[in-house]
Computed example of a mutant assay.
Amino acid sequence: MRMLVNVIFPIEPFNSMARNGTAGEIISRVIDDIKPESIYFSEQDGHRGAIMVVEVSDASAIPSIAEPWFLNFEANCEFRIAMTPDDLMRANLAKLAEKWSDVHVV
């Protein structure tokens, strides 16, 4: 299943790691290990952040995605299921609406 992973880095220890030159090398190692479909770095709520798209085959894979960020950067990680337009079409929204709606629009 495809997931969006939102990573928020606290100011420390990231500032210290940037100053001593280790931040980039560790980020590179983490990305090489996780192999996200894509990753973008941005500001989030006044902090450094990253947004990754990853394929998660099983819930037991989540720690292998989160722990490198937790252990190296004391980062916060948020996981959200992400659907493509094809995924959404396969959900059969019309059938779900019929099942769960009291009022049907014709």
Rank of each mutant, 00 (worst) to 15 (best):
M1L: 10
M1Y: 12
M1D: 07
M1R: 09
R2N: 14
R2T: 13
M3G: 01
V5K: 02
V5I: 01
N6S: 12
V7G: 04
V7Q: 01
V7E: 05
I8V: 15
P10V: 03
E12M: 08
F14E: 12
F14A: 06
S16T: 13
M17N: 10
M17I: 09
M17T: 08
A18F: 11
R19W: 12
R19D: 15
N20Y: 11
G21S: 04
A23Q: 05
G24L: 06
E25L: 11
E25D: 15
I26D: 04
I26N: 02
I31H: 03
I31T: 10
I31V: 15
D32S: 07
D33Q: 10
I34C: 06
I34H: 06
K35P: 09
K35W: 10
K35D: 05
P36F: 10
P36D: 06
P36T: 10
E37A: 15
E37V: 15
S38R: 06
I39T: 10
I39D: 00
I39K: 03
I39Q: 05
Y40K: 14
Y40R: 14
Y40S: 15
S42Y: 13
S42M: 14
E43Q: 12
Q44H: 14
Q44S: 13
Q44P: 02
G46Q: 01
H47P: 01
R48E: 01
A50Y: 03
I51F: 01
I51M: 06
V53N: 06
V53D: 05
E55N: 09
V56D: 02
D58W: 10
D58P: 12
D58I: 12
A59I: 11
A59K: 05
A59C: 09
P63R: 01
P63Q: 03
S64P: 02
S64Y: 00
S64G: 14
A66Y: 09
P68F: 01
P68R: 08
P68D: 02
F70D: 03
L71Y: 13
N72K: 08
N72E: 14
N72H: 13
F73H: 03
F73K: 05
N76T: 11
F79T: 03
R80A: 11
I81Q: 14
A82D: 02
A82G: 04
M83W: 15
T84L: 13
P85L: 06
D86T: 09
D86W: 12
D87I: 04
M89H: 00
M89G: 05
M89N: 00
R90W: 09
R90G: 00
A91T: 01
A91M: 02
N92H: 12
N92M: 03
N92I: 01
L93P: 01
L93M: 09
K95L: 07
L96W: 14
L96I: 13
L96S: 10
E98V: 02
E98S: 00
E98A: 08
W100C: 05
S101H: 03
D102Q: 13
V103Q: 12
V103D: 11
H104Q: 13
V105P: 00
V105W: 07
V105L: 14
V106T: 11
